[in-house]
């Protein structure tokens, strides 16, 4: 299985421009609007345009949304954004979280800490100290906000070029509702998230879950191929029956093509499984890197290229077995290479 995924990812990187073209065509054919963003500023521009007139947006947890500074953009637009991922909300309010966090198990969080985080989040409503009750209150508030929102914004775990299909994988079920209940859905993803076939995308997404959260398969995977539609009334095709009538897909470059052009496209094979998370966290701590949106070899390379972080002083001697076939040695080479720029 590991060999299959690594081989598939190598092929994707090798064929990236063609696959992205195919993906774009299929997404458009499905009824999605496709937006290309050269960098974070470009992505923010697109989003600003799309969010004009919206009062309340809901979003799920996404490193890519962090990468482009979505929350800050929304604040600047005076748009209320409600976060719907309990794990993200709690982790964000915990003191010792600094360096970012791919797949989110709420591990090693002491009960008192999480209780406090929830009380903070709930504000006046969070008067109780009963953890279960706090959790329920937060869950209800999230649900209300999703139902009342005009636009849902998510990341994407994978995009299958074969059919123009977005894959969202999660435990909480909030991303499903965020991408289904509001009348508009905006999905933002780095271009490396593309896969060839739906089967390959699904395999990669499940493999990531297996490594990251240590389980066979995520609780909820949504495959989305366009806006909601029905032809039940006289065969007249109408969008937005139950799900969104509009789906926007923002494809973000922001240094990814640069990695490819510089001969380090293999960094883009990453499937965000978190197998290298410990090594990357150690490196981040040792080098005093803050503002990493993604604790992966890919994430560190991109952050370096985007000049969010400075060159590393220490790279350490860790070796990681990467399911997507990225060799640790190549990663360290890339760091050296990009440090020189």
């Amino acid at each position: 299985m590991r060999q299959d995924i690594a081989a598939a990812r190598m092929t994707v990187v090798h064929d990236l421009p063609d696959l992205l073209n195919e993906a774009g065509e299929k997404l458009t054919k499905n009824g999605c609007r496709v937006h290309l963003a050269a960098d974070a500023a470009g992505a923010r521009n697109v989003l600003a345009g799309l969010l004009q007139g919206e009062k309340l947006a809901v979003r799920s947890y996404s490193k890519t949304l962090q990468e482009i500074g979505f929350d800050e953009l929304a604040a600047g637009l005076n748009l209320k954004v409600f976060r719907t991922c309990v794990a993200e909300i709690v982790m964000d309010r915990l003191e010792n979280n600094r360096a970012g966090y791919p797949p989110l198990p709420l591990i090693n969080c002491a009960r008192e800490e999480t209780g406090r985080a929830l009380q903070e989040e709930l504000g006046a409503e969070g008067e109780t100290s009963d953890l279960a009750e706090l959790g329920r209150l937060l869950k209800d508030r999230i649900r209300e906000n999703i139902i009342g929102s005009g636009v849902g914004v998510t990341g994407v775990n994978g995009l299958a070029a074969e059919t123009g299909t977005l894959l969202l994988a999660e435990e909480e079920g909030n991303a499903r509702n965020v991408s289904n209940l509001p009348p508009r859905h905006i999905a933002v993803l780095g271009i490396e998230k593309v896969h060839g076939t739906v089967a390959e995308a699904l395999a990669a997404v499940c493999s990531a879950a297996a490594h990251g959260a240590g389980q066979k398969v995520p609780a909820c995977i949504s495959l989305i191929s366009g806006p909601s539609r029905t032809g039940d009334i006289g065969f007249r095709l109408v969008y937005g029956m139950h799900g969104p009538r509009e789906v926007h897909v923002v494809l973000l470059d922001n240094g990814r093509r640069f990695l490819l052009q510089q001969g380090f496209g293999d960094m883009l094979q990453c499937i965000d499984c978190g197998a290298c998370q410990d090594m990357c966290r150690r490196m981040a701590l040792e080098n005093g890197w803050a503002g990493l949106f993604s604790l992966t070899m890919k994430g560190i390379c991109l952050a370096l290229v985007q000049k969010r972080i400075g060159p590393p002083e220490k790279t350490g001697s860790d070796e990681v077995a990467c399911p997507a076939g990225i060799e640790t040695g190549r990663f360290k080479q890339a760091l050296l290479e990009f440090s020189r720029l």
């Binding site: 709420l106 435990e171 609780a219 995977i221």
Partner: peptide, 20 residues
């Protein structure tokens, strides 16, 4: 693709509960 109830946490003693 639905593989069980939705949830958050559950990995340890810490916070866990029903998802959306």
């Amino acid at each position: 693709v639905i593989s069980g109830p939705t949830r958050y946490g559950g990995q340890s003693d810490g916070l866990q509960g029903a998802g959306q």
